[in-house]
């Protein structure tokens, strides 16, 4: 009973109606979606994102990961990136864009039956290294490629 009154009071005191809408919109799904790693995705640096996602930022370079991305992207709003891992026991693949405001773009958790190859389209605000991180047999491996962007994908 008291608890509900407290919430009611808090929301009445919120600065503006928009503020309320935003906080309601942001908080409710986060509680529902425990699977989305908020701290990792909202990290501002590559290391922090990796620590949030995998518990460690120490990665080893590997030539068994192939990252295919264009050297020059005409449109940063959609850059096709393919990550192929031939590492045994590939468990997870993450794609990061170093210079984006939130580097961690996607994490894919793979079933043992799933092939270690993912293609997707990402946004890039400006020219940056694209980093692929693969978790295989409990260890982290990485490779990267620079992509030059001629038009930003995150304008504003």
């Amino acid at each position: 009973m008291n608890h509900h009154r407290r919430i009611l009071l808090k929301s009445t005191l919120a600065a503006s109606a928009t503020g309320m809408a935003i906080s309601a919109g942001l908080l409710t799904p986060k509680a529902v979606l425990a699977a989305w790693n908020t701290s990792a995705f909202e990290s501002k640096t590559v290391d922090a994102a990796l620590t949030g996602a995998f518990g460690s930022a120490s990665t080893a370079d590997s030539d068994k990961i192939k990252l295919s991305a264009p050297d020059v992207a005409e449109n940063g709003a959609s850059v096709t990136v393919t990550v192929k891992s031939s590492l045994p026991k590939t468990e997870a693949i993450s794609i990061l864009v170093k210079e984006n405001a939130q580097p961690l773009t996607a994490s894919f958790n793979l079933n043992p039956r799933t092939e270690g190859a993912i293609t997707t389209n990402i946004k890039m605000g400006k020219s940056s290294d694209v980093i692929a991180v693969v978790k295989a047999d409990g260890k982290l491996y990485t490779t990267k490629q620079q992509v030059k962007v001629t038009i930003g994908g995150c304008g504003g």
């Binding site: 709003a77 961690l104 773009t105 994490s107 894919f108 092939e115 993912i118 293609t119 997707t120 890039m124």
Partner: peptide, 17 residues
């Protein structure tokens, strides 16, 4: 496939696996 995506995936996301 269990994908966690951020807003930095392109509009109308495309995935191949």
């Amino acid at each position: 496939l269990d994908a966690e995506l951020n807003g930095s995936i392109s509009t109308n996301p495309y995935l191949k696996f």
